[in-house]
């Protein structure tokens, strides 16, 4: 267990490509941080820099009170769960878990006790003598977890550990990983491209885009006050509606409709979450419905406002819907972003 402290860390490849722009952050003891972003955003690179699998171009990385920039991965007191599990195919489950301990000079008894404990925790006990090739995907995933747990590392690293599992198993493992991490009270960094995983698991989320950290915050902060149009559209399903609008006087104009809301004059991007919109006969914004997606408990209404794509998420009341509807929303549901930079205003 340890804190992680990162100062101006960056990664530039020899060909000049900047994979990670200078970033600074701290991770508290026992905290679970999720790095989320589209593929190629640098989240895995950042994680691998912490692991020591990628060189750090500039900056300082501390785990606990040590600067670990130039330490080998094995010396950083970390454990990592890989996307494809990376189990040693020629070793049994027990040996896979024991290998890292053995190399750190643990005695036979210590190893046996640790492996046993981890196996119980992950219900792997009956599988200890099997080879990885004889396990299902979910079981392999557990072994990879076990291999990390037995080591009692200062820091857990997860690199998209659930992306190879089917939806049901993914949900189950999500809960399990979170529980384990809480129980062991270990600091963890978790990389995923799945915003649902990020929202459900994280103490804090780091949203990355094009090698930069766009926003750091708790899941509800990220959801309620996204720092940019990128964060707004990446987090949340279906994503936040973003429409071009104009600030005039103390009003925001969307096409012909006006909403009174403090706003500087000029072009803005207006963000509204689909679930914060209601259908109302007294609504202010006309909505042209084109398609209804039934989700059971709710419906997604696809259509246009002022000629721009717009989605509404509304409770399913089985009512027949006309093609032309009116929308209403509270003023606190409005997010304003700079039309050019995408930054929150």
């Amino acid at each position: 267990m340890a804190t992680v402290s990162v100062t101006d860390i960056s990664k530039t490849y020899p060909n000049g490509a900047q994979a990670v722009h200078p970033a600074s952050f701290d991770i508290a003891d026992g905290e679970l941080i999720v790095l989320v972003g589209p593929s190629g955003c640098g989240k895995s690179t950042l994680l691998r820099m912490v692991a020591g699998l990628e060189d750090i171009t500039t900056g300082d990385l501390r785990i606990g009170d040590r600067v670990v920039n130039n330490l080998d991965p094995a010396e950083r007191d970390i454990a990592m769960v890989f996307q494809n599990y990376a189990l040693y195919p020629h070793m049994s489950v027990a040996k896979n878990m024991a290998y890292g301990l053995k190399n750190r000079g643990a005695t036979k008894d210590q190893i046996a006790a640790k492996v046993d404990e981890a196996a119980k925790m992950l219900s792997l006990t009956p599988l200890l003598d099997r080879r990885p090739s004889q396990l299902s995907g979910g079981q392999r995933q557990r072994v990879a977890m076990g291999r990390a747990i037995v080591r009692d590392p200062a820091l857990f690293l997860f690199d998209e550990p659930l992306s190879n599992l089917d939806a049901k198993l993914r949900h189950q493992m999500r809960v399990e990983i979170r529980n384990l991490q809480r129980r062991l009270n270990v600091t963890a960094m978790y990389v995923t491209h799945d915003q649902v995983e990020a929202m459900t698991m994280a103490d804090r989320i780091f949203v990355l885009n094009a090698g930069k950290i766009e926003q750091i915050g708790t899941p509800s902060e990220i959801y309620r006050t996204p720092a940019s149009t990128f964060v707004a559209s990446f987090m949340g399903a279906p994503p936040m509606n973003l429409v071009s609008a104009k600030g005039v006087g103390r009003q925001v104009l969307i096409g012909d409709s006006a909403i009174s809301h403090p706003c500087a004059d000029g072009d803005v991007t207006l963000g509204i979450r689909p679930e914060q919109v209601t259908l109302s006969d007294t609504g202010t914004i006309p909505f042209k419905l084109t398609l209804v997606e039934e989700l059971g408990a709710s419906r997604l209404l696809h259509g246009k406002i002022a000629g721009q794509d717009f989605v509404v998420n509304t409770p399913n009341d089985d009512a027949a819907l006309a093609d032309d509807l009116l929308l209403d929303f509270g003023l606190d549901a409005l997010h304003l972003f700079d039309a050019l930079t995408g930054q929150r205003l």
């Binding site: 060189d55 171009t57 500039t58 900056g59 300082d60 600067v67 920039n69």
Partner: peptide
């Protein structure tokens, strides 16, 4: 705090 700006491995 020691500031390491260039970590190019020798």
């Amino acid at each position: 705090m020691t500031k390491i700006t260039h970590n190019k491995k020798p």
